[in-house]
């Protein structure tokens, strides 16, 4: 089986600070990491490789430094990494990104399964996975929490939706996006790291892909960002202490009063 895992480099957000003067995000010193939700996609692919045999290729679109996430993917056990990189790809929205990635994946040829993360934690759109499927006219199953291999050409998957878990029979080739429940990601190993250092990362760009230039980057993106603001969270609330029995009773009394006043109980 030939599995492709599209992954993304995102800013590590747990330490993001806002500049109180300008209201903008302080980007300096913010580390780039592999999108945490992509780790589950990588793990799902690597588990299939362990159990059924597969070649797993991680693909990322970004500047040359994004190669770091491919190194990590290979350190975890992926066979290969492909960097989709070109100045012309810069500023792409999800539509243009999924176009470029789908063309890159087509160029790799012979894909049985594409496994993507649920979404990226920076843009938070969950649109690139389905977009790639649409460009490639592949069947799409999102929010997958479990994969069973029925045959070489068919998977039985479980899909986490509002009503519970749907069970679907999915013919290959197909694209799935996975949720965290699918598996717990493995850590990169030293052996993998050494392999990554020896692996030549293939770069795909406008030079070796046949691309519709009007579909690329900022210019090719149907959506345009017209304004960026910093939301002000203003919620100063009541604070009560409840450190001993008496104050617990009082605090809960006041909470109940508050909830009744706001008509939620």
């Amino acid at each position: 089986m030939n599995i492709i895992v599209p992954i993304k480099q995102v800013p590590e957000t747990s330490n993001v600070k806002m500049d109180p003067e300008t209201g903008t995000m302080v980007r300096s010193g913010v580390e780039s990491v592999v999108n945490p939700l992509d780790l589950y996609a990588l793990e799902a692919a690597l588990s299939l490789k362990d159990s059924h045999g597969a070649t797993v290729t991680a693909v990322t679109m970004g500047p040359p430094k994004a190669r770091k996430v491919l190194d990590m993917a290979i350190s975890m056990g992926c066979d290969d990494g492909v960097l989709v990189s070109d100045r012309k790809f810069g500023g792409a929205d999800t539509w243009a990104t999924s176009y470029t990635l789908s063309e890159a994946i087509k160029a790799l040829g012979n894909v049985d399964l594409i496994i993507a993360g649920e979404r990226a934690t920076d843009g938070d759109t969950a649109q690139v996975g389905p977009g790639i499927a649409a460009w490639m006219i592949l069947p799409l199953a999102t929010y997958i929490s479990d994969i069973e291999v029925e045959s070489e050409k068919c998977l039985i998957v479980e899909r986490l939706v509002e009503e519970g878990y749907e069970r679907l029979r999915l013919p290959l080739p197909a694209l799935i996006t996975v949720v965290k429940e699918i598996a717990s990601p493995r850590l990169p190993t030293l052996r993998g790291k050494k392999k990554a250092m020896q692996t030549e990362i293939r770069t795909l760009s406008t030079e070796n892909l046949t691309l519709e230039s009007t579909n690329l980057g900022l210019k090719g993106s149907p959506t345009k960002v017209v304004k960026i603001e910093t939301p002000k969270v203003t919620r100063g609330g009541t604070v009560v202490e409840a450190m001993d029995d008496a104050s617990v009773t009082e605090a809960v009394d006041r909470l109940m009063d508050f909830l009744r006043q706001r008509e939620v109980v």
């Binding site: 590590e12 592999v34 945490p36 190993t189 050494k194």
Partner: peptide, 24 residues
């Protein structure tokens, strides 16, 4: 990191996991 990892492997380690990004 690689030099130390190698030393561990030469000295009976079963496995060496590495973490280079903050989440790992």
């Amino acid at each position: 990191m690689i030099a130390i990892g190698d030393l561990c492997m030469e000295n009976a380690a079963q496995e060496v996991y590495i973490a280079e990004d903050r989440n790992a």
